[in-house]
């Protein structure tokens, strides 16, 4: 392959990337199903953020903790008293947990934060269900544990 051919291929690759970027941007701006830079539960939050101390205080005052992580993580360890409600199965779990959550004076949701923020997503969904006092804890379970707050882990079976 000559140098000219290689340059032509690289240039074509760049043009393809540019076309994809421009078309993707235009489609997202002009169509109703377009997505923003960040998900709506982050860019237009209906919930309030609380730090670790505030979350612990809210729990003391009767708030219910919601663990928005995957059920596998929840089974391994969770904040004491937390129930598991995660975005992927929200519609399925809401009818089961809804009555309990509605009775709680406030709800504090926690989870992981990197590519996605399931806690914020669940909090947004809870607001959508009519709950008014919904908070997202800015911190993960490890932070909760490091602060000496109670964590529940499965009991080891005796050999």
């Amino acid at each position: 392959m000559s140098r000219g051919q290689s340059s032509y291929i690289l240039l074509s690759c760049m043009v393809m990337l540019l076309v994809a970027a421009v078309a993707g941007l235009a489609f997202n701006l002009l169509t109703p199903q377009g997505v923003g830079w960040t998900p709506s539960h982050v860019s237009r939050p209906l919930w309030s953020a609380v730090d670790l101390a505030q979350a612990a205080q809210l729990q003391k005052d009767g708030a219910l903790l919601v663990d928005a992580r995957d059920p596998g993580d929840y089974k391994l360890a969770r904040a004491a008293g937390a129930v598991n409600l995660y975005p992927e199965e929200f519609d399925l779990l809401w009818p089961l947990l809804g009555p309990t959550l509605r009775q709680a004076p406030a709800v504090v949701v926690y989870g992981r934060y990197f590519s996605r923020w399931p806690a914020a997503q669940v909090a947004q969904l809870l607001r959508g269900q009519g709950l008014t006092k919904v908070y997202v804890m800015l911190g993960e379970l490890s932070d909760w544990q490091k602060a000496g707050l109670p964590v529940k882990t499965p009991r080891r079976k005796r050999p």
Binding site: M16, A20, A21, G24, F27, N28, V35
Partner: peptide, 9 residues
């Protein structure tokens, strides 16, 4: 979005 449109192009 970029990945999806790149696949299409």
């Amino acid at each position: 979005v970029l990945l999806a449109w790149l696949e299409l192009v």
